[in-house]
């Protein structure tokens, strides 16, 4: 084999030795290592959990039709036949995708069913509810919907017209806030992970002060002395990331049943979904990255302070 290959092989070998050597060191004090990894795991699990919560909310939101609907409440005098004719004429109009008629009787039946005021309504002589036309605009663009709303409002049969979009807008606004909050939280907790790892590595360096001195005395380069500490940081990050995923999966497992029951009550097929492959890899990758960088920062600061004397 030619020399460059031998050198490369040796280089890989040295790194593998550092990789597994540091793992051995961590396993030699399992409790201390586990505690550090758990702190990192919790710090990583929090933003991951929030992120998943948002993702699930988003799925619920898109499950509901995202396109706006216009509800036209007709005057009391308008009969069901007139309402049917109006619905048919609206269907022919441009701008309306579907038009659904809810007659007075249907409205009453629905209201009795869901409101629990059925008995009170029976006391009335006549049905107080108007017929309603639910119009779905062809375009989901809110502005086009508003134009259509204005046109429909001016129809003589219509008493009141309502665009059911405000709640959807609000939901999206809330989720945007949530997303921002996840980012801020992830940033803060990421910094916390950096500090935890940095501090742990600092202590490791202090504990191995004599070794660092000896290595420097016999000609160990900075890169050589730094290496095991960087790999220790990497392991802490990887273990922390794995624990974070375990915590998230555990939480989902605990929440799955109550959410199933809730979904059944809302006659929804919704199921809580966990992190996908990309999200899982991101959590592990962030752990590793933060571990490495945290260790690098600590090593850069503290290795220079230790000089043979």
């Amino acid at each position: 084999m030619s020399r460059p290959f031998v050198r490369l092989e040796l280089w890989i070998l040295r790194h593998l030795e550092a990789l597994f050597g540091t793992l051995r060191d961590l396993l030699r004090r399992p409790l201390a290592s586990l505690m550090t990894a758990t702190v990192i795991g919790i710090a990583l699990a929090l933003p991951t959990g929030l992120y998943l919560l948002l993702g699930n909310l988003q799925r619920i939101a898109t499950g509901w039709d995202a396109t706006p609907r216009i509800s036209l409440f007709l005057h009391q005098e308008v009969t069901d036949e007139q309402a049917t004719r109006l619905a048919a004429s609206l269907r022919g109009r441009t701008g309306a995708a579907t038009v659904q008629l809810i007659t007075k009787e249907e409205a009453l039946a629905e209201f009795t069913n869901y409101s629990g005021f059925g008995d009170a309504l029976k006391a009335l002589d006549q049905n107080p509810l108007p017929a309603v036309l639910v119009v779905q605009p062809q375009s989901s663009d809110p502005q086009a919907a508003e134009v259509l709303l204005d046109k429909l409002k001016s129809l003589p049969e219509v008493e009141q017209a309502q665009l059911d979009m405000a709640w959807l807008k609000r939901l999206h606004a809330v989720m945007a806030v949530g997303q921002q909050a996840v980012l801020v939280l992830a940033g803060l907790l990421g910094a916390a992970v950096l500090l935890v790892i940095g501090n742990t590595i600092r202590l490791t360096i202090q504990n191995r002060r004599d070794e660092v001195v000896v290595l420097k005395l016999i000609g160990g380069s900075d890169a050589f002395i730094r290496r095991p500490f960087l790999y220790t940081g990497l392991w802490y990050g990887l273990l922390g990331g794995s624990l974070a995923l375990a915590l998230v999966h555990g939480s989902i497992y605990l929440l799955a049943e109550p959410i199933d029951r809730l979904a059944i009550l809302y006659s929804s097929a919704f199921r809580l979904s966990g992190p996908d492959t990309i999200a899982s890899l991101t959590v592990l990758g962030s752990g590793i990255g933060l571990g490495w960088v945290g260790a690098w920062l600590a090593v850069g600061r503290h290795l220079r302070e230790i000089e043979p004397s």
Partner: peptide, 16 residues
């Protein structure tokens, strides 16, 4: 480090 690799040093307290 390169310099120190060319020099062998024996210490009174061994530094093992």
């Amino acid at each position: 480090p390169e310099l120190r690799r060319r020099i062998g040093v024996v210490f009174q307290d061994h530094r093992l």
